[in-house]
Design a protein around this nucleic acid. Structure first.
Length: 473
RNA sequence: CGCGGGGUGGAGAAACGGUAUCUCGGGAGGCUCAUAAUCUCCAGAAGUGGGUUCGACUCCCGCCCCCGCUACCA
């Protein structure tokens, strides 16, 4: 039977345009999807947008437009990442749409009765932010944003009995039944679980949510806490609650379900989510890959610093392949990374222009001088360094390894000096090198799909010298 | 003693109980197929104090420093 894999990204909330951090996640997930497709897996790759947050209501109010308009407009920006970054997701699931509501409500209703209960919730509420803060966050009577109108508010909400799943979750994570990569993140999750889990609120009053969100089944006065409905996206992207054909295929009858997420939301994915699914009696995801955050020139990305990087600008200036390369090669896959234009150019010139691009150019010229022609080839395989590292989500190491092969070919050419050869001697020297370039091109497929294809085309049939793949910048 | 992760040449990274590797940057030389590319060589590194060991960057302990988490609107 054909192997299957379901790959998801997290769904960003859409109160602002996408930044380079989400681009990282999307590109990583896309590289995985392409990798598994090349291995003949039946792949379903889903992304989407989180549209039920109160933040969207606030952003819409600030722009003086209806909330639905705002989320539509912004969701479009995220959807446009696909053409801009050459992303091959199969589904883009928007949570403000009707089918998602149906699925989220179904999930709620499936949860065991004893796991959902009503409790009054009391907390420090900032009227300015319309958000609750912990006492530690209120300094000198002011919230982190500087508002001083803090009130103690009490309200009835539904709670999820996470405490029922304490021991079960500990085992689940400990035994890697829900595998968390990298392991350091697994340790963090475990230690968090062991601290003792408290139940968490899974609804808000309709007033406080400004009427925006997924209604709680059977209670008009409440809407779901955004995380409860947002996590359900992984099911509703597959039609859960509506047409469940894909849901059955990729969620139920598939033990290869992978969530690609950022480090800030592990708790929701590794603790709340499996507990919710268990309560509802549904299958669990199998693996969660946690990537780090990107800083810009060593600083946190923040709007007030004005250092947000627009992925669309980058693509327009440098091209999609260069952007994908930077994200996959330069950002340490298992940790935090930095974005700097200086480094971007360095890497572009060093590895794409001087490394790969130049190698392709010099070999193409030598090959065309001797009218070399390579027959088409189909049965390519991934090099060990690529397959092993992609299996562990080490995109950076996979590419570093692949570039070692580029360097090996450069050295070999300098040693064999094929430009001093002629006729069959030249052909004999350059043929294996050209073949190896094609191998490298195949291995590049998950990371740089266009470049991979270009090289493959150039080195299949009669080889001719062409324009540089990556002109120096 | 809240939990977790770290401190490797100028920068960023890697490996390993036994010559510390790679990329960028610096210096010298070679080649001319190639995008002022490429190849060779040189300079330059383990936070700190102990311990284990024939041998420690690697294992153990203390200290210093950095980062993340410490739950309820992403």
């Amino acid at each position: 039977m054909q192997k299957k894999i379901y790959i998801t990204t997290a769904i960003p909330y859409v109160n602002a345009a996408p930044h380079v951090g989400f681009a990282l996640e999307v590109v990583q997930a896309d590289a995985l999807a392409r990798f598994y497709r090349a291995l003949s897996f039946d792949v379903c790759f889903a992304s989407g947008s989180d549209e039920n947050s109160l933040k969207n209501v606030q952003a819409a109010e600030a722009e003086k437009i209806p909330t639905q308009k705002l989320v539509e407009k912004n969701a479009k920006l995220f959807e446009n990442l696909a053409p801009a970054l050459n992303i091959t997701w199969d589904v883009f699931n928007r949570t403000s749409l009707e089918h998602h509501f149906a699925g989220a409500q179904k999930l709620w209703k499936l949860c065991k009765k004893e796991d959902i209960y009503k409790k009054s919730y009391r907390g420090l509420y900032c009227v300015g932010c319309e958000a609750f803060y912990t006492p530690a966050e209120i300094i000198g009577g002011k919230c982190p944003d500087g508002h001083s109108n803090i009130e103690e508010v009490e309200e009835e909400n539904y709670f999820f009995k996470l405490s029922n799943y304490q021991k079960w979750l500990e085992d689940l994570v400990e035994k890697d039944e829900l595998k968390i990569v990298p392991q350091t993140k697994k340790h963090e999750v475990l230690s968090f679980i062991k601290q003792r889990l408290e139940d968490f609120s899974i609804s808000r009053s309709v007033e406080r949510a400004h009427g925006w969100g997924v209604p709680v089944p059977g209670d008009e006065s409440q809407v779901m806490y955004v995380w409860f409905d947002a996590l359900a996206t992984y099911l509703t992207a597959l039609g859960f609650g509506k047409d469940e054909h894909l849901y059955k295929k990729y969620w139920v009858e598939n033990s290869n379900k992978l969530h690609v997420i950022g480090k800030g939301i592990i708790r929701f994915h590794a603790v709340y989510w499996p507990a919710m699914l268990a309560s509802a009696g549904l299958p669990l995801p199998n693996c969660e890959f946690v990537h780090g955050y990107i800083t810009v020139d060593g600083q946190k990305i923040s709007k007030s610093l004005g250092n947000t990087i627009d992925p669309f600008d980058l693509v327009e200036k440098y091209g999609v392949e260069a952007v994908r390369f930077y994200l996959l090669r330069e950002i340490p896959a298992w940790g935090d990374g930095d974005f700097s234009l200086t480094r971007f150019r360095e890497l572009y010139n060093g590895e794409l222009a001087n490394g790969l691009g130049n190698l392709v150019a010099r070999v193409a010229r030598l090959a065309s001088d001797t009218s070399l022609s390579l027959p088409p080839k189909k049965n390519f395989t991934f090099k060990k360094v690529v397959a092993d590292n992609l299996g562990n989500f080490r995109f950076d190491h996979a590419l570093i390894g692949l570039w070692e092969d580029v360097s090996v070919l450069d050295k070999r050419i300098n040693e064999e000096k094929p430009w001093e050869l002629e006729g069959t001697e030249l052909k004999k020297s350059i043929t294996p090198i050209a073949q190896e370039i094609r191998e490298i091109a195949f291995n590049l497929g998950p990371f740089l799909p266009q470049t991979s294809q270009k090289i493959m085309d150039q080195f299949t049939g009669k080889i001719s010298a062409e324009k540089p793949l990556f002109p120096r910048i």
